[in-house]
């Protein structure tokens, strides 16, 4: 029951979000969902109490463009997703190198259900 969802590709993500910034959209947060072979990233926005979302699906292991250059406040949450899911963001303004939310001795990417290697194998099967 999500309304106002715009599906975009990873390449056009930055442009879509850069277009929203001057229109007065407030960036709420970024949600990452483990979709098996892909990462599902949902960017939530608010304008006058109305929610809208931008959804990007990227294959696991691919690099996602960071939007922290557009919305400065996105840097923290991108670091969090990088920690908990192991998604790599390209162009992060502040990069904690996977040590933002997790301690040095903590396991890497604890929120992942299907590890990247398995996801790649599954994607290979699908292609065959």
């Amino acid at each position: 029951m999500l309304h106002n969802v715009t599906e975009v590709s990873a390449e056009s993500l930055r442009d879509t979000i850069a277009a929203r910034f001057p229109q007065g959209y407030r960036f709420i947060t970024l949600t990452c969902v483990d979709g098996g072979a892909t990462w599902e990233l949902l960017y939530h926005f608010d304008r006058n109490y109305e929610l809208s979302h931008v959804r990007v699906r990227v294959p696991k292991g691919a690099v996602v463009p960071s939007i922290s250059g557009i919305y400065a406040c996105a840097a923290l949450v991108e670091n969090e997703v990088q920690d908990l899911f192991g998604v790599t963001f390209e162009g992060l303004t502040v990069n904690y190198e996977r040590r933002f939310m997790l301690a040095v001795e903590a396991p890497l990417a604890p929120m992942v259900r299907t590890p990247v290697a398995q996801a790649a194998a599954r994607a290979g099967e699908m292609r065959m």
């Binding site: 904690y96 040590r99 933002f100 939310m101 997790l102 903590a106 929120m111």
Partner: peptide, 11 residues
């Protein structure tokens, strides 16, 4: 720097 009390509630 946060992460001193991450409890993994979402997980």
């Amino acid at each position: 720097a946060v992460g001193y009390i991450h409890r993994g509630i979402e997980k």
